[in-house]
């Protein structure tokens, strides 16, 4: 499974954490270092990107590190604090696998080597995009740390939460959060921009009612002077 996008690792002394978006969802890899420091660092990283992670499900990799039940529980509590659900644990340690099973955590397929968890994209270029060619329907949700491009419509009841920009080559009528990792400079463009709700970075806007019936043209939305505004998408 190739990572679609990687948030560059930030090293804090000995600890390293990788957060990746893959086709199968989000994954977090915890590297070497002191466990409690690592958890503290994770807590910090998640706090910084709270809007992005809230309500998400992640797969976790802990390499060959031995973990007992208490340690794993600590980790799950840290995730839970940010409303993140742990759906599987990938581990090379028998002790950690046992701890996971007794806590009812599904085991992911073991990775061949720990090296695979190294980021595929270089830290200087963290914005690899996710391209989807389909209609996003009510109840469907896309969560991706980089840019998201949809060729198709985003229907009401569907949501996109992206760390970067969101481009919809179609009608955008659902919910979109661009720059969800805290980037107020992100943009959202659509051929028809009538989202039920639009969020960019820390800002929120709802579609004005009257717009829905007026002449429709491609638009781009961005934050200007602390407010979300939309402009004709001239492609300049």
């Amino acid at each position: 499974m190739t990572p679609a996008i990687t948030i560059p690792p930030r090293s804090n002394g000995e600890t390293t954490i990788w957060i990746k978006g893959t086709r199968k969802g989000l994954s977090i890899t915890l590297g070497e270092g002191d466990w409690s420091e690592l958890l503290h660092e994770l807590d910090l990283r998640l706090s910084q990107a709270d809007a992005f992670f809230r309500g998400s499900q992640v797969n976790l990799s802990t390499g060959k590190r031995d973990l007992d039940q208490t340690e794993l529980k600590e980790l799950m509590d840290t995730l839970l604090k940010h409303d993140i659900k742990l759906i599987s644990l990938r581990t090379g340690s028998e002790a950690a696998a046992e701890a996971a099973q007794s806590l009812g955590v599904r085991l992911g397929l073991p990775e061949a080597t720990l090296d695979q968890t190294a980021p595929r994209t270089s830290p200087e270029e963290p914005s690899e995009g996710l391209l989807l060619r389909r209609t996003l329907r009510s109840g469907q949700s896309i969560r991706h740390p980089g840019h998201v491009v949809i060729i198709g419509d985003v229907n009401p009841g569907a949501e996109i939460i992206a760390g970067g920009d969101v481009v919809v080559w179609g009608k955008l009528r659902g919910m979109v959060h661009a720059g969800a990792l805290g980037d107020n400079g992100a943009v959202v463009c659509a051929l028809e921009l009538t989202p039920t709700q639009l969020r960019i970075g820390t800002h929120i806007a709802t579609s004005p009612e009257e717009k829905k019936s007026k002449g429709i043209q491609p638009e781009v939305a961005f934050v200007l002077n602390g407010r979300i505004v939309a402009e004709p998408w001239s492609g300049k």
Binding site: R137, G139, Q140, P156
Partner: peptide, 12 residues
């Protein structure tokens, strides 16, 4: 129609 959209997503 909205429910149909939801159902189509699940069928997919």
């Amino acid at each position: 129609v909205r429910s149909a959209d939801r159902i189509i997503g699940l069928i997919e």
